[in-house]
Design a protein around this nucleic acid. Structure first.
Lengths: 138, 138
DNA sequence: TTTATTAGTCAGTTAAACTTACTATAATAG
DNA sequence: CTATTATAGTAAGTTTAACTGACTAATAAA
């Protein structure tokens, strides 16, 4: 009488493992002032610069909350703000060299962790899994 | 020059959609005193009863934090605590009838949402996806 | 030119985590 | 059989990341 396990439970379990790993590894690497919510900013800040309002909307938090997170990263030297030449009210958020380094470290940490998944499923099935997930995210 | 998207990004995106849907639907159904953190308790409280310490460890939060969440659910009438006959220090947490109802509503909400995913991938591929995820969660 | 919208800040609040310190019960070691 | 240690849970206070409401400045639209 095994009960049906919602797909979301699997997603949550795996996402949680991944996030836990990231926190642990980043702390080991000496980045103690970065939290998962900051991580989102590293990942979603565009090369050419992103607006706070735009980031907030994508992250589904208020612009005030995003302002606070950004201010923390600014203090840590991970991001900087420049004036937006096309709109004098607006700022553009950019990753600094330090920020870009952390971003790539983070991506590598996830990539390494996911290598364990690849091994568990085998190369072919892991690729299929990724295709399915990508289709669902479209 | 498309860059590799970490699998975790897909997981997070989908998990986020699901959670957002759950919050919206539960509120619509009139359950405004239940948050995602409480949802975890509904899902993980065993039929025969669970200890706070045990739940806290599984959820990777402190027992104090779990105590607070449990107290809130207790006040809402979703759970009750009974003495553990095998250990006089301990309590066993149980879902009340109201709690069980909310749990099944929640599962149905997710199931309905995931039906959209099933449709997007097709029955066969969705089943494969679930198998892959289940294997990774083992 | 007034009015509405948009980008962002400031001040204060809430929720869910945290830490440190505590009580009560149980298990174990001398 | 006591003394110590471990475990279950509570209490008080703190931190963090979210929130709301009220604001300024720049821009767009009527």
């Amino acid at each position: 009488m095994s009960t049906y396990i919602n797909t979301g439970v699997y997603l949550r379990t795996l996402w949680d493992e991944l996030r836990y790993n990231m926190e642990t590894r980043l702390k080991e690497s000496g980045y103690e002032d970065i939290s998962p919510s900051h991580g989102w900013i590293f990942y979603n800040t565009e090369e050419h610069g992103s607006r706070i309002t735009e980031l907030a909307a994508k992250a589904r938090i208020t612009k005030q909350s995003m302002s606070v997170l950004v201010a923390q990263l600014e203090q840590g030297g991970y991001v900087k703000k420049i004036h937006d030449s096309t709109d004098k009210r607006a700022w553009l958020l950019l990753l600094t060299a330090k920020g870009k380094k952390v971003k790539s470290i983070g991506q590598q940490i996830n990539f390494d962790f996911e290598a364990g998944w690849k091994q568990k499923l085998g190369e072919a099935d892991y690729k299929r899994l990724r295709t399915f997930l990508a289709r669902l995210c479209e």
